[in-house]
Amino acid sequence: MPESEPERAAPKHETRVLDPRSLRGLAHPLRMRLLRALRHHGPATASRLAERLGESSGATSYHLRQLAAHGFVEDEPSLGKGRERWWKAAQQGVSWDESLDGSTDPEVRGAADLLLHELATHHTRELSTWIATRYEWPDWTGASDISDYTLRLPPAAARELGRRLHALIDEYRDAPEAAAPDAARVRLHLHAFPQREG
């Protein structure tokens, strides 16, 4: 008999600050996909995640245990029956400890590079999917946005801009509009980085 989807409330948005140890624990393509699936779709078993992601249940089980060892996922005992083990995301996001950028440890730098490249690849996939399916969302014409801007800022102003943008986005997390009948999950990608001129 197939597993049924659990009833779930919208999770409170808690973030985890990555340090060198937790960064190394998360920086694996399958672990990142597993964590993303639990965040977006709610609690699941290793078997359900294996089916969703096209992986073996042995691989998903192993990497879920690794994520648990680093505090990214945890048991959802209210859903388990017998030997069935359900997992849920322990937090809804991660943030970056700035000390990671200054690390000279090759292992930390490699993990940071892998994590950032995986995130960029995922963002590109999400955007490509939106472009390919945008005609299936007629009510969203004019509501979506693909923009880019070039500003000239010092690092302190760029940090302040990021802080203010994050604060504005946070205002919409629990807005009453989320319960509107035409509400959909909206993904926002925010990238800010310097470029060499010329």
Rank of each mutant, 00 (worst) to 15 (best):
V73W: 04
P6Q: 13
R125W: 10
A158G: 03
T124N: 09
H13N: 08
E177T: 15
A167I: 10
W86M: 05
P106Q: 11
G82Y: 07
A111T: 05
L153F: 03
P194Q: 12
H189I: 14
L18E: 07
H28R: 08
D113H: 15
A120R: 15
S61C: 01
T124K: 13
K12Y: 03
V94D: 04
Y172T: 11
L153M: 10
Q91V: 15
G25T: 11
A44G: 03
L64D: 01
R173M: 03
R185A: 05
A183V: 12
V17S: 12
G93W: 13
K12I: 15
K81H: 06
H13M: 08
I131A: 09
G58I: 08
A184C: 06
E74F: 00
P181W: 06
H166M: 11
F72Y: 03
S78R: 14
T15I: 12
I146A: 03
A90Y: 04
L26E: 01
R31K: 10
H13S: 09
E51H: 02
V73M: 05
A44T: 03
H122T: 15
L64Y: 01
H122K: 07
G25P: 08
H40K: 06
G162R: 14
G58E: 01
R187M: 06
A59T: 10
H123R: 09
E76H: 11
G71Y: 05
R173D: 05
S128Y: 00
T121A: 14
P77S: 00
W87S: 03
A183L: 10
R16I: 11
R152D: 05
R21G: 04
H63T: 04
R196L: 13
R185L: 13
D139M: 06
E51Q: 12
S56R: 12
A167L: 05
T45S: 10
K81N: 01
G80K: 13
L49G: 01
G82E: 04
E3S: 14
S47K: 10
V186A: 12
E84P: 00
H70F: 11
A180E: 11
R109N: 08
V17T: 13
G162V: 04
D139P: 02
R65E: 10
G142H: 08
R48D: 02
H70Y: 14
H122A: 12
P20I: 08
R52E: 02
T141G: 03
L119V: 15
A111M: 09
V94I: 15
S95H: 04
W130K: 06
R52I: 04
T133P: 00
E98Q: 15
F193N: 07
R159V: 09
E118I: 12
E76Y: 04
E98I: 13
E107C: 09
E14K: 14
I146H: 04
M32D: 02
R65I: 01
R8T: 12
R8E: 01
W87Q: 03
Q92T: 10
Q92M: 13
L26N: 04
G162W: 07
E126T: 12
T133W: 03
F72Q: 02
E160H: 11
Y172K: 11
L168D: 09
A68W: 01
A89W: 04
D101N: 13
L26P: 01
A183E: 10
S147G: 10
